[in-house]
């Protein structure tokens, strides 16, 4: 299974034929304890969960053979509520890893409670998607709207709890989700390191391209930021990024993909077989 996912992702530079059925079965047999995964949905649009499910080719075996989804409303119909809800379970189960989608609303007691509980129950907390990691477009919230006009202040979850891994993106790509899952299962900390470092990147904005790259004499006008922008807020003018702030959702992807923000040289060489 693992080999099949890796092959699908091109994670290892080896000829396709090698990932034979035999090898797939062998690796599948080697799988022992399946990690217990939770999925918590705070203030996000479910786009991150949608992106996860876009791994069509590997999703069913991933969910059934490789992990146990032990908690989550959308993915497992298992959820917990302090208010004695007859459909809810009594307490949040222990989890090896919990994916948290969405920023947290400071005025939403239920979300705050669930978030704090998740930190208590999970070994690893992943800020899944830009809303959880950087606040993303919920940063623009000013309250005064239905269903609850009091819900005004949305912050990245790392503002409230200790986060172990951040996977930004609006949404994160299906590939990075699958690659991260594989890395977690393999204990491949080298691959995960950049995402551990990104935990601290909670105040993101398209203007980071100007502040952290152009202003720092690092921009080379390659256009990676403009390609990466998920809302087409970035264009290139005279070889420098130009950010349309009306379109920017503060997801952080432009700066994260920039080759001058961080540089995973060893991994790239490994992936290319160089």
């Amino acid at each position: 299974m693992l080999a099949r996912i890796k092959e699908f992702l091109g994670m290892e530079a080896k000829p396709k034929e090698e990932a034979s059925q035999q090898e797939v079965e062998k690796v599948a047999e080697e799988e022992k304890a399946k990690p217990r995964i939770g999925y918590i949905h705070l203030s996000g649009c479910t786009g991150d969960a949608m992106s996860l499910t876009e791994n069509y080719d590997i999703l069913a075996p991933l969910l059934t053979e490789m992990v146990d989804i032990v908690y989550g409303q959308t993915l497992a119909d298992v959820w917990y509520d302090v208010e004695n809800n007859p459909y809810a379970i009594d307490d949040m189960p222990e989890m090896d890893l919990v994916l948290i989608e969405g920023s947290v609303c400071l005025q939403d007691e239920h979300s705050m409670h669930e978030l704090l509980k998740a930190r208590e129950k999970a070994g690893l907390v992943v800020a899944f998607g830009s809303c959880a990691a950087t606040g993303c477009f919920t940063r623009y919230s000013r309250g005064g709207q239905q269903a609850n006009p009091r819900h005004e202040s949305f912050v990245p979850i790392a503002d409230i709890i200790k986060v172990d891994l951040a996977m930004p993106g609006c949404p994160p790509s299906p590939e990075i989700i699958a690659k991260t899952v594989v890395a977690v299962i393999n204990g491949d900390m080298d691959y995960l390191q950049p995402m551990m470092d990104l935990v601290g990147y909670t105040e993101a904005c398209g203007c980071d391209l100007q502040l952290k790259v152009v202003n720092q004499a690092l921009c080379i006008g390659c256009g990676t930021c403009a390609m990466s922008c998920q809302t087409r807020a970035v264009t290139m003018t005279n070889g420098r990024p130009e950010v349309n702030s009306d379109r920017c959702i503060k997801c952080g992807i432009c700066y994260i993909q920039c080759p001058r923000s961080w540089w995973p040289a060893d991994r790239i060489k490994q992936d290319l077989g160089l």
Binding site: S130, P172, G223, C258, P259, W263, I268, D271
Partner: peptide, 20 residues
């Protein structure tokens, strides 16, 4: 430098869906 941007995107396609 562009090769580097391209390869980083391929190894870490964090917000770039089905391009790598």
């Amino acid at each position: 430098c562009q090769t580097m941007g391209l390869r980083k995107m391929q190894s870490y396609p964090i917000g770039v869906r089905f391009v790598a």
